[in-house]
Design a protein around this nucleic acid. Structure first.
Lengths: 223, 223
DNA sequence: GGTCGTTGGCGTACGTCGTACGCCCATGTT
DNA sequence: AACATGGGCGTACGACGTACGCCAACGACC
């Protein structure tokens, strides 16, 4: 078998990530990544099926960075740690956020993360449907927080625009936007996460106290 | 002033929305929308600055549908109602979800929604930084929930794939995926929302009981 | 009713993108 | 030394967004 592969998928992903971080997500193109690797556009197809797989590789590379080993400690702390690690890994590459959000489910790293979070929730007494709901709630918060932080409206340029809104039509919002500017992103994420975790922790155990030691929770049907 | 405009922005938006709902988001192009309106590609530029504004129009049209009048009732119920209305309006047009997520902040309808949510939170005793955090938490959950529902992994085709995962490597996840399939999306959203609201409601009031009537909450720094 | 300025509609054209196709050459094995 | 395999690339096609400029239809005014 002549000629071993001269380029690993990770190398391709790294090149693509470099292109994105230099020129933004709109700069990501087959031609640009090929140029980054010192090749012609069509040569890249030897290593990648097409544009979609190229994007998947970038997502993989970013998500692979989050460590999912958190065996010790109470379940709330473990979920919090996992959530914060995911948040940190993602916000380390802000330009890739839109990609991460749409292609997150295809990568193995995010599956591992999900398993780790679910294991922590299981230790916390969540089972069956309740566990599924709890997991989705945490996942939704993390995904949404990354998204909201990246696209405004209460941070960065969006906040400035909102602070300039007509105060008579949007009094509460104008006031809140002013306060929101002072909150560092990581602190904002942590405090919101604390709210979600408190909501999970305060979910009542059904029946009498004996069930508490049994450890099965129930989440009400909601409003 | 001769010749009134023969096409309103809403009509353009409706045509674009029709294109998207027929052929998916990737079918949205200047040429396609122009054809939908019975015009040549370049004629569309008489009504729209460019592709970006076309997308904004679609987002406007979808978000304009959510009613933000909820003056009565306790604050939790009002926030829940607003969240559910937003969720319903968005999930009514699943194909537009990616657009909604990235361009949400530019539309006036979402600003109105934010003001309504913030007003409810203010009634609940949230002020200053705490209110900003509370709002972002709710917003993050709503945005994330829409996103997670639309892109899997625990629903639709994603769930099937996850249920087929190696049970030895992902035991909790495989079990949870099986349970998750049975949950209708709207119920899942409501129950997760209930968790978030419970987390907000259980935030402690600082100091002694007198402050409760004063109505100022504090959210802890988090994990 | 004729004139004029504004606007609507469109044809053409350019640069970009993803990628199908097919050629040539470098390479490790026989 | 010869060969089959696979890497690299040039060309080309269709779709995209859109700059530019032309012509026709229209409403307001004389």
């Amino acid at each position: 078998m002549p000629r071993p592969k001269s380029l690993t998928p990770v190398a391709v992903a790294a090149a693509a990530l470099a292109v994105v971080e230099r020129g933004g997500l709109e700069a990501l193109s087959m031609r640009a990544v090929a140029a980054e690797l010192g090749m012609g556009a069509m040569s890249l197809y030897r290593y990648v099926e097409g544009r979609e797989q190229l994007e998947d590789l970038v997502v993989d590379l970013v998500l692979e960075a989050v460590d999912t080993d958190v065996s010790a400690g109470p379940w709330e702390a473990r979920v919090a740690e996992l959530a914060q690690r995911a948040w940190a890994a993602i916000t380390a590459h802000p330009a890739v956020v839109p990609l991460l959000l749409t292609r997150r489910h295809t990568t193995e790293a995010s599956v591992r993360w999900g398993e780790a979070v679910l294991a922590a929730l299981a230790d916390g007494g969540f089972a069956g449907t309740e566990r599924a709901i709890a997991f989705r709630t945490v996942l939704s918060y993390v995904v949404g927080a990354v998204q909201v932080e990246h696209f405004g409206p209460l941070s960065g340029a969006g906040t400035e625009a909102l602070a300039a809104l007509p105060r008579d039509r949007f009094p509460v919002l104008a006031d809140t936007a002013a306060h929101a500017r002072a909150i560092p992103p990581d602190q904002e994420f942590r405090r919101g996460l604390a709210v979600v975790l408190r909501g999970l922790a305060d979910v009542e155990f059904p029946g009498d106290d004996k069930n508490v030691s049994q450890g099965r929770r129930e989440i009400p049907a909601g409003p």
